[in-house]
Simulated scan of single mutants.
Amino acid sequence: MRYIDFRSDTVTQPTPEMREAMFHAAVGDDVACDDPTVNQFEALGASILGKEKALFVASGTMGNLTAIMSQTHRGDEIIVGTNSHIFQEEVAGASVLAGVSVRTLSFPDDIPDVQMIKEAIRPDDIHAPATSLVCLENALRCGRIVTKETMREIYEMAHAHGLKVHVDGARIWNAAVAQNVDVKELAQYCDSITCCISKGLAAPVGAILCGESDFIARARKYRKMLGGGMRECGVLAAAGICALNHMRGRLHIDHENARYLAEQLSAFDCIDVELESVDINIVFFQLHRSREFCEALPQKLYKRGIKICNPIAGREGCFRLLTNNDVSRKDIDYLLQQLREIL
């Protein structure tokens, strides 16, 4: 039975072209920097993002942690959003492994605010940790995008105070498409950026970390420390090359499908949709039914060939759906029909 999977864009299957490229990939030992396919992938990623160098990492989480370790000292403090992936979803790696204090800021609607960040920078005080890094996210976990202008303001303020800026760009490709700008226009306003290839771009594994040459040299050693030396990983990088060359140009379809899904859901009497937050391929909706009904909904849909996540913890009756390369407009209509029957 085929399942239509709305749980995330991480569930995408590699395309036939990716599988073919993986089969034929030339490989070497990437720890020794002699895997030709990895080298090609990293050069391509750096070029697309307008950075000097790039590093293939096993995941976005590894990329973010490596970037933090490479731009801070133990005992430093980094600034992040309260709802950021780095703080909420990365197992406290910044504190446990990088040894940094994490200062969280609750931005309105999660959109980073330059004045709030500026006020959170520690003074030169023997009692306080030194603020050394601002970590942004674009697109945000809530489905919104951060504008190029906001990124520029924060980047310029941070540099004026001697701070570096890292961007968790797991969905930076979506953020660029949503703003109709080249991704370089966003990536120029950070010192380092992690970009996933295993979400909307549909590659099976990995992310790419980009920045200046000396930063990537440090990051390569920290990647090794974290167990990220993947040896003959050209078989994975081959899929990444396909992702960067062929999958970025179709992300607008996911965005259009998400908007369609959100608008159709908003027509249900018992559903409220956060239409204002549908900037990319993420849709949040509130189902006004009992807790028991909401908790049972994923299993009811599963029996009809549809996968969705459980209600969001702490937000009773709130669900998150994502469109992706494996979800068609026909699939969305099928979901809507099943919801009508269940509700």
Score class of each variant (00 low, 15 high):
residue 57 V to Q: 01
residue 49 L to W: 00
residue 173 W to Y: 10
residue 188 Q to E: 14
residue 69 M to D: 06
residue 169 G to E: 01
residue 70 S to E: 02
residue 158 A to M: 06
residue 110 D to F: 07
residue 169 G to L: 04
residue 122 R to G: 08
residue 94 A to W: 01
residue 190 C to N: 05
residue 117 I to A: 01
residue 186 L to K: 00
residue 94 A to H: 01
residue 160 A to H: 08
residue 47 S to M: 15
residue 182 D to P: 04
residue 178 A to S: 07
residue 66 T to V: 10
residue 98 A to N: 08
residue 145 I to R: 00
residue 110 D to Y: 13
residue 53 K to I: 05
residue 120 A to E: 05
residue 180 N to C: 10
residue 132 S to I: 10
residue 188 Q to L: 09
residue 97 L to A: 14
residue 143 G to M: 03
residue 139 A to K: 04
residue 132 S to H: 05
residue 68 I to V: 14
residue 157 M to S: 06
residue 99 G to E: 04
residue 91 V to K: 13
residue 158 A to K: 02
residue 64 N to A: 09
residue 164 K to H: 08
residue 173 W to E: 07
residue 76 D to F: 11
residue 49 L to V: 03
residue 65 L to M: 08
residue 121 I to F: 09
residue 163 L to D: 01
residue 62 M to Y: 10
residue 75 G to R: 06
residue 178 A to L: 05
residue 190 C to W: 01
residue 150 T to G: 14
residue 185 E to I: 04
residue 189 Y to D: 02
residue 126 I to M: 14
residue 86 I to A: 12
residue 73 H to W: 12
residue 80 V to Q: 08
residue 103 R to H: 13
residue 86 I to N: 02
residue 89 E to K: 11
residue 112 P to T: 09
residue 66 T to F: 08
residue 76 D to Y: 14
residue 79 I to H: 00
residue 116 M to T: 10
residue 186 L to W: 01
residue 159 H to I: 13
residue 122 R to N: 15
residue 56 F to C: 05
residue 191 D to Q: 06
residue 142 C to Y: 03
residue 94 A to F: 03
residue 98 A to V: 14
residue 64 N to Q: 12
residue 171 R to K: 13
residue 171 R to Q: 12
residue 121 I to R: 05
residue 125 D to V: 13
residue 95 S to Q: 13
residue 85 H to C: 15
residue 154 I to L: 09
residue 125 D to K: 11
residue 83 N to Y: 13
residue 57 V to H: 01
residue 68 I to A: 03
residue 96 V to R: 14
residue 100 V to L: 07
residue 71 Q to C: 15
residue 82 T to F: 12
residue 56 F to L: 07
residue 132 S to Y: 02
residue 187 A to D: 02
residue 150 T to R: 07
residue 61 T to C: 11
residue 98 A to T: 12
residue 59 S to C: 10
residue 120 A to S: 12
residue 194 T to C: 10
residue 49 L to A: 04
residue 84 S to P: 09
residue 111 I to E: 03
residue 149 E to Q: 11
residue 172 I to T: 03
residue 59 S to L: 09
residue 173 W to C: 13
residue 131 T to F: 01
residue 140 L to K: 03
residue 68 I to P: 00
residue 160 A to G: 13
residue 119 E to N: 13
residue 83 N to C: 14
residue 177 V to E: 02
residue 181 V to Q: 11
residue 134 V to N: 00
residue 48 I to N: 00
residue 114 V to Q: 05
residue 88 Q to P: 11
residue 164 K to G: 08
residue 157 M to F: 15
residue 118 K to R: 09
residue 82 T to Y: 12
